[in-house]
Amino acid sequence: MLRNLKPKRRRLLFLLSGIFILGISLGLALLALNEQVDLFLTPTSLSKKTIEVNKRFKLGGLVKKNSIRRLEDGITTLFIITDNNMSIAAEFKGVLPNLFREGQGVVAEGKLNPQKIFIASKIFAKHDENYLPPEIADAIKKEGQWKGE
C-alpha cells in the first residue's frame, strides 16, 4: 500500500510517524521520571512521603507572612515554608538572597532534623511572573486589589 504513494507523500509519512513515535516515547519517559524532573518538593508532597532524617533534598513554597525571625546571633534566620495547604518550619544560617521576602517564593536545599524542622544549607529566592513598577505595585496594594502574596 505504501508503495503506491508518491515519494513525496512517503517521505512525509515517514517523517510524521517518526516524530510521533519519538514524541510518545519521550513523553512516557518524562511521565515516569516526573518526580525526578521536579526541582523541589512542596510541604504537601513532602507530607505524603517519608523522608529519612538527614537525607538532603529541596523544599519549595512561599515564605509565610510574618514568619521570618532573626536570631540574636545575627546569622540564623527562622521562617516557615508554606504552599497554602501545609507548612514546614525552616532554619538557615548565612546570607540570604535579595529576593528572599515574606510572601515570595523560595527553594531551600537541606535536610529534616529529628524535630521535623528543615535545616537549610542553601536558599534560592524564586520570583513570580509579575513585573511592575514600584509605584504601581504600591498603588495596587493600597487599593486592596493585590492578587499575589
Binding site: 521536579d38 526541582l39 540570604l96 542553601k122 534560592f124 529566592a125
Partner: peptide, 12 residues
C-alpha cells in the same frame, strides 16, 4: 545570581 542567589540550577 543577584535575584535567585545562584548562577545556575539544574531545573527543568
Amino acid at each position: 545570581k543577584p535575584t535567585w542567589g545562584t548562577w545556575w540550577i539544574w531545573d527543568a
